[in-house]
Every structure is written in structure tokens, then in C-alpha cells.
Design a protein around this nucleic acid. Structure first.
Length: 565
RNA sequence: GCGCCUGUAGCUCAGCAGGAUAGAGCAACGGCCUUCUAAGCCGUAGGUCCCGGGUUCGAAUCCCUGCAGGCGCGCCA
């Protein structure tokens, strides 16, 4: 039952306005005491040639409202509607009880593919906190799109090409040892890479050597290629530990090197369509005046391809391979111009699906003592942060619940969840200054708080031996705290939809916090266990629904919902 | 210089297809565990919604001008 639609239909005749229009006008009053829905009558003043307050009174007296409207009240220029609380609570809880884990999901995607390019780490470089945003935003969107009936395709667009690999090979041949790299992983690679830069400042011939080494990779020289593959494999093995902790997966690891043989057709087509122009020896695509963008560089003056060339080729490949309905790029906003250019070039090439390419931009991550910089050694490894968070969680658990079974697993779920949750708690465009104390705060609007509330629900349901089949008397949970929980449950599907449409996982994060807060208020205000049978049953049903939706929300965000903690 | 983004409580952020007294959390202070998980709950205090114009019955929200900060602007990715 949709309350809004029915209220709007009831008003339509008296207001002489289409129901759909009235439905869009209906809003939620700022305070529940003012009603559940409100119609502001100001806009009707012109067409009805009356004062808003008079309109509200007239609509009230002339309309016949559905039975679930217990009261309609004109207040100022508003007409407020009060829904029968037992009906409202029942309508809110029934779908959750009936659908369980699929409550909030839908089939609107109809199986269409949505490519999501996220995380996209660089080979032989550290996986640091700067990569956390892309990784967890992308992963959450992956879950959300699947939940709404799409077929998400997770793509880790690896940074596995470029002259830096020539440098690394030279550095390794001069100063590296197989054993050190094997044991030290990316940190050891960074060390010899840094040494290369130091020594190359004195001896420029090293740079020539590096260029030659990279050329050797390109030409398929077996020795160079073997080293390159080795660096790649070692890095992937190392980052896999972090992905395992985060529970993040990918369907494709096709990175930059994958597109090496796929760029020529793009260049050919650009030439053929007369889009390519020579400028200072480089080949560029110029944009129409109204685009107000600098040209997009396609080929360097030495004929080498560039970042944009590769991304255009990648977009073509993904369209052909997956026939996506949308293709998302979860990449920091620094690359705003780059993606505007790439998308526009594809549009100029006559591909209507260019409109389905979306840059899901997010803010910069920095540390208080300066921006992240691999060179300056200020880099904070993601794995270190995750481990620290897990350790802190374990310490808290040792204090609060030392006998809990499965401590290791729970400490991992809570410690990791805290970081994921905090990364997903603000609009993605906001910059983040990484702060250990804030990242490891487990109180207030945090992941552990929501997980704790979930565990609290589980504990109640287990103690009461809750029977989902027991009949529920909804008239027993019409107190303000219960109704507030019900109101949020009712709003969950819309929150998921909004998160998907806006590519904003934080909408779900906030929703889960709100629900957890509402449940905790309910919990503190009302006893559940040991109440009369029918009261206990009704409150347990509410608890079961809250637990279910908190768990679903957390799962969508990529966060575990342990039953005990 | 040009373009994009951000500016709301001491701090971190919601609210911004205009609506009724601007909301949370953290930090501070004061309460609540001999009954359901205190990683919790309640209360107190804290705001020129960056400034100035405009549109509107009504602006934190829309438009314009400024200011401050971030990012970007050809052969890196």
C-alpha cells in the first residue's frame, strides 16, 4: 500500500489538480507530532484563488480520505495527515518479515550489465590509504547495483604499464636480489626504485638504460618480460591479502597492458573521421567551442599512446565485451577533466553510449602532515591501518567480552568494518584528512556502533527464542519509538534506490546509523523480554525487522554484521 | 588567468529537484548498569548556514557578484 498515492487521489477532486502532481507535492513534516504526511497549499493559492490556510481547510472538509488516515488537520498553509499507527507499522513490517534478506532489492536492472572500474592499483607501488576510497566506494556500488537487479562487473584497471617498469628492472639488475624482493614485496621494490631515482640524478645514463629496458618489455624480450611478470605477480599476491580482509573481489584485472594492442583501431578511426589534428607534433582531438575544454592528447610527438588513448580503447572494449547499460569510473576528482575529455571524444566518434559513461568522482585523501607521497615516505600502507584497527578491536573485546567464541573473526569484521564505514560516511566528493584517532573511533556514528546494535538485536532474538511465524498484534507497537523504527524500515528501499541513482553509498551508511539510533532508543525505552506474550512478540518482530535491515544495509556497504561482539 | 569542486556548531558531517522551530556524531559538562550487550541511552551548552545582492508567499537550498580553500589546465597516469 502506498499511503502517498492514495492520499493524493483522495485530494484530487477538491484541489482540482491531478493526483500525480499532488503526490509529488506531499512531504514529510519536520516533526512526527505534526503528522506523517503534509500537503503545503501555497502553490495551490494561485489556481484556487484562495489563501493557503483556507485551501487546507477546504480540502479537509471536501475530501473523503482512505480509512488509514486517522486524522487530517489544517495547520497554517499545510494540511497534515496522520496515518493510523497500527496500519502504518503493519505496512512497514510486513514486507521485511516476508522478504527477509531481499527486502529493499528490486529487479529494475533487469540483468543489464554495469561496469565498475574501481581500486585500480599500480603494480610495484604501495596499496595505501589513498586507495581505500575507490576500493570501498566501488565495492559498495557493485553490491548495490547487483541488489537492484543489475549484473555488476568489477574491474581492477591495473596500472601495469609505463617507463617506471624499465626503471625497476634496471634497479633490480643492479642492486636487487631475488630473495629480498620475494620476501620484502612492494616495500623492497620501492626501496630499489627510490635508489634508482637517487642515483639517476648523478648518472643520467641510467635513464637511458631504463628506457631501453622498458622497450625490451614492449618488444617481448623474454628476460625483461619475465621480470615484469614477476613484479606483477608479487604485487597482486600482496594486495590480495588486503582485498581478502576487505572482502573485495573483481571480475576482471584487465589493466593498462591489456589494452596495448587495442589502441591502434581507435587511432585509425579518429584519423578516418578527421578528428585528429597535429599540434606541435602531437596528435590531439579538439573540442567544439561550447565544450570549453582544452584538446585531448591522443599521441605524443614520438607517436606513443597516452592515458586518454588507453581509456578510450578500454571503454570500447568494455562496451563490446559486456554491452553495459552504464560504465562507472570510481576515480578521484583530480581526473575530472580527463574523463570529460575521454567521454566527449567517444561521443564525437559517434557512439551514443558515451552518455552511459560516468565518472564517479571522490575527494582527496591526505594526512595531516601533508598529502600522500610515495617519494617522501609519508605513505600509510592500507594493510597496516587495517591491522591496527583489528588489533584495537581485539583489545576492546578482551576487555568487554573476553570469553567470546570466534574472537579472531569478529575482531577482523569489526576492525575492518570501522574503516570501511568511516570511508563511506560522507558524500564521496568530500576530501578526507586521514586521522588515526578518528579512523579508530568506535563510538557514535561508526561501523562498530551499527554492528553493536545488530548484535544486540541478535542477542534479544536468541534469548527469546523468537518465532518468526508467531502472529503479531501491530497495535501493541504504536508508541513513538516503535513507530520511528517502522518509519525508517519503510524508507529503506527508497534509500537504496537513491544511493544507486546518485552513486552515493553514504546514503545507505547514514540510513543504517539512523536506524541503529532509532532502535537503540526503542530498546532503552521499552522492555522486550519478560513482557506479556503478545507485547513481547510484537516487539520481537520489530527487533527482527531492525536486525534484518541493519544487516542488509551493512552487507551492501561491504561490512560484516556479526551476531555477537 | 580560465574551468570544475567545496564552504552549515570548536572538530567531522547530514539537510540543498525551495517549505513549518537548521539536525547528528566527536570533543566538554551533568545524569543512567543488583532485569534484555554501557561499543549503549538521556540531558546541558554550542550556529551571522562564508559575505553581499536578486527571484519567491517562503531561501542553508535556486540565480548573480565577491571572498576563502582544494583540484585541474599537451606530450605522466
Amino acid at each position: 500500500m502506498d499511503f502517498r498515492t492514495e492520499i493524493a487521489a483522495a485530494l484530487s477532486a477538491s484541489a482540482k489538480t491531478p493526483a500525480a502532481e499532488l503526490c509529488a507535492m506531499l512531504e514529510t513534516p519536520p516533526n512526527p507530532e505534526m503528522g506523517d504526511y503534509a500537503l503545503p497549499c501555497f502553490k495551490l493559492a494561485k489556481s484556487m484563488k484562495k489563501a493557503p490556510s483556507a485551501i487546507a481547510a477546504q480540502l479537509k472538509s471536501e475530501s473523503v480520505f482512505p480509512g488509514f488516515v486517522s486524522r487530517a488537520e489544517a495547520a497554517g498553509g499545510y494540511l497534515n495527515f496522520f496515518i493510523d499507527r497500527a496500519v502504518f507499522v503493519r505496512e512497514a513490517l510486513l514486507p521485511v518479515l516476508a522478504l527477509g534478506a531481499s527486502f529493499g532489492s528490486s529487479n529494475e536492472g533487469n540483468g543489464r550489465a554495469v561496469c565498475i572500474d574501481y581500486s585500480s592499483i599500480n603494480i610495484a607501488k604501495p596499496f595505501h590509504i589513498g586507495h581505500l576510497s575507490s576500493t570501498v566506494i566501488g565495492h559498495a556500488l557493485y553490491n548495490i547495483f547487483n541488489f537492484l537487479g543489475y549484473k555488476a562487473v568489477g574491474i581492477n584497471h591495473l596500472g601495469d604499464w609505463g617507463t617506471q617498469f624499465g626503471k625497476l628492472i634496471v634497479a633490480f639488475r643492479r642492486w636487487g636480489s631475488k630473495e629480498e624482493i620475494e620476501n620484502g614485496g612492494v616495500r623492497a621494490m620501492l626501496e630499489i626504485y627510490a635508489r634508482f631515482h637517487d642515483e639517476a640524478e648523478q648518472d643520467d645514463s641510467l635513464n637511458d638504460e631504463a628506457r631501453a629496458a622498458f622497450k625490451a618489455i614492449e618488444d617481448g624480450d623474454p628476460d625483461a618480460l619475465a621480470l615484469f611478470d614477476w613484479f606483477r605477480a608479487l604485487t597482486l599476491k600482496e594486495v590480495q591479502r588486503v582485498y581478502d580482509l576487505l572482502g573485495v573481489t573483481f571480475d576482471s584485472y584487465a589493466g593498462e597492458s591489456f589494452y596495448n594492442d587495442k589502441m591502434q583501431p581507435v587511432v585509425d578511426e579518429l584519423l578516418e573521421k578527421g578528428l585528429l589534428e597535429l599540434d606541435d607534433g602531437a596528435s590531439v582531438v579538439r573540442f567544439p567551442e561550447e565544450d570549453n575544454m582544452p584538446p585531448c592528447l591522443i599521441l605524443r610527438s614520438d607517436g606513443a599512446t597516452l592515458y586518454a588513448t588507453r581509456d578510450i580503447a578500454a571503454a570500447f572494449y568494455r562496451k563490446a565485451a559486456y554491452d553495459f547499460a552504464k560504465s562507472l569510473y570510481v576515480v578521484a576528482y583530480q581526473q575530472n577533466l580527463h574523463f570529460r575529455q575521454v567521454f566527449r571524444v567517444i561521443e564525437l566518434m559517434g557512439r551514443p553510449w558515451a552518455k552511459d559513461l560516468v565518472h564517479v568522482a571522490f575527494g582527496m585523501v591526505s594526512t595531516a602532515d601533508g598529502t600522500l607521497s610515495t617519494r617522501k615516505g609519508k605513505v600509510v600502507f592500507l594493510e597496516d591501518v587495517l591491522k591496527e584497527s583489528i588489533e584495537k578491536t581485539r583489545a576492546i573485546m578482551m576487555e568487554k567480552s573476553p570469553d567470546l567464541a570466534g574472537m579472531d573473526r569478529i575482531a577482523k569484521e569489526v576492525g575492518v568494518g570501522a574503516l570501511v564505514f568511516s570511508t563511506l560516511s560522507a558524500a564521496r566528493i568530500k576530501d578526507i584528512v586521514f586521522d588515526w584517532d578518528r579512523a579508530l573511533n568506535f563510538e557514535g556514528e561508526t561501523g562498530p556502533y551499527c554492528q553493536y546494535t545488530h548484535a544486540r538485536c541478535c542477542s534479544l532474538l536468541a534469548r527469546a527464542e523468537y518465532d518468526p511465524a508467531a502472529e503479531v498484534d501491530y497495535s501493541l507497537i504504536t508508541d513513538p519509538e516503535s513507530v520511528e523504527v517502522a518509519r525508517l524500515l519503510h524508507a529503506f528501499p527508497a534509500a537504496v534506490k537513491a544511493a544507486c541513482e546518485k552513486y552515493e553509498p553514504f546514503i545507505i551508511t547514514r540510513f543504517v546509523v539512523d536506524l541503529a539510533q532509532a532502535f537503540n532508543r526503542f530498546y532503552l525505552a521499552h522492555r522486550i523480554l519478560g513482557e506479556p506474550r503478545n507485547v513481547q512478540n510484537a516487539r520481537l518482530a520489530l527487533t527482527a525487522c531492525a536486525r534484518r535491515v541493519i544487516a542488509t544495509g551493512l552487507t551492501l556497504l561491504g561490512i560484516a554484521a556479526p551476531e555477537k561482539m
